[in-house]
Design a binder for these strands. Structure first.
Lengths: 198, 198
DNA sequence: TCCCTTTTAGAATAGGCGGTCTACAAGTCG
DNA sequence: CGACTTGTAGACCGCCTATTCTAAAAGGGA
């Protein structure tokens, strides 16, 4: 952006990525500014505050970055090209794959922040996102009920809550090192109320 | 225990309970000693260190207290008087009831600590407990497979992981205020691979 | 070249942290 | 009544926290 002035000596995007990984791994409270500075390329405190304003603002930016960079795995929940079941299953499987990817911290930043970031309105940031996902899952299931994709007689609210709970639980399982195959098997078992034909 | 000396002015058990609730609500890192002292009855720092040794030791005591006082809801996983399915279902339903009880923080201290308490060996404390539960669930499912309680052709590892994931996810759902009825419906849906007769 | 803008390093600040120390208070026991 | 034991109040410690300030440095534009 700036056309004049001394150029910065670090890569801002790389710094934000590193900060995101740190928050993802440990949560807002448990990460100190010192850790952040070192991980973000060794910039000085002055540089940090000039570029990122504050630790809290950095966290907000990190959540936004996470949603764009890793949270897209659940975008298929609203993919109009897929029938409801596929929307749900693809979202779950892509989520599992992402959360088990060893190239970044395991689990989901949004889900794991349910306890962390208690101070200020930071918790609402991730809670809103979880509520949004919950609503989308409910919508898929309701559509599936109407279109006959669900086996007759099943309770749609229960199915939706089961898949929501599983999706959230995957974060903790991935954190605990449960292998992806096992999580994928769990997802398969989560769809036994659905017709595989059709 | 001490038969002599000045009697303490606070209730040690009540103090431990209050501390447990604080850790339960916010996690180890996010709770300060000052907060603890106030919640534990307004005792002084000297009294605190005399009775509880350190913040970290208090956390360990709090986890132990939690397991005895609230963690017993999953004891039925090893109840020899129940068939495997009942063991699992009772444990899940009692867990849901406990975690939605408004008389204490919502969710499960053990599950929600997957991210918190990163420092030292504190994380292992709760991770071990989660691994133990995971093993018990697997054992129930394997027994059920052998005894024919599971519908033929289902994948036992998937069923076990599904129930494990749901159990963990309940913590976050409860945290987010999902009502107990909804969680109970999720549990019901989680058993559709099982024979209800027999 | 000199100015202007932006970033830099590093010192400084103010407050919070977990934890300790000292002096005193409140009981029991002989 | 002392002697002893235990708990309490509050000052104190050193460290770490997030944040700000000062002064120098590194580029572009004219």
């Amino acid at each position: 952006m700036p056309r004049t002035g001394r150029p910065r000596e670090y890569d801002r995007d790389a710094a934000l990525r590193a900060a995101t990984h740190l928050f993802w791994e440990h949560g807002f409270d448990a990460v100190s500014l010192e850790q952040l500075l070192k991980a973000m390329g060794g910039l000085s405190k002055a540089s940090f505050y000039a570029a990122f304003k504050s630790k809290e603002q950095l966290y907000r930016d990190a959540v936004a970055y996470y949603l764009v960079e890793h949270g897209r795995v659940s975008d298929d929940l609203v993919n109009p090209a897929l029938p409801p079941r596929k929307r749900l299953e693809v979202a779950l499987r892509r989520t599992a794959a992402m959360q088990c990817d060893p190239s970044h911290p395991s689990g989901c930043l949004i889900g794991l922040s349910a306890m962390t970031a208690a101070t200020g309105g930071l918790n609402a940031l991730t809670a809103d996102e979880r509520a949004r996902n919950r609503a989308l899952i409910g919508q898929c299931v309701r559509e599936a009920l109407a279109s006959g994709e669900l086996k007759p007689g099943v309770e749609p609210d229960g199915v939706a809550a089961l898949l929501d709970g599983l999706l959230l639980g995957i974060s903790i399982m991935a954190r605990d090192g449960v292998p992806r195959d096992t999580i994928d098997a769990a997802i398969s078992s989560g769809f036994s109320d659905w017709r595989s034909d059709l």
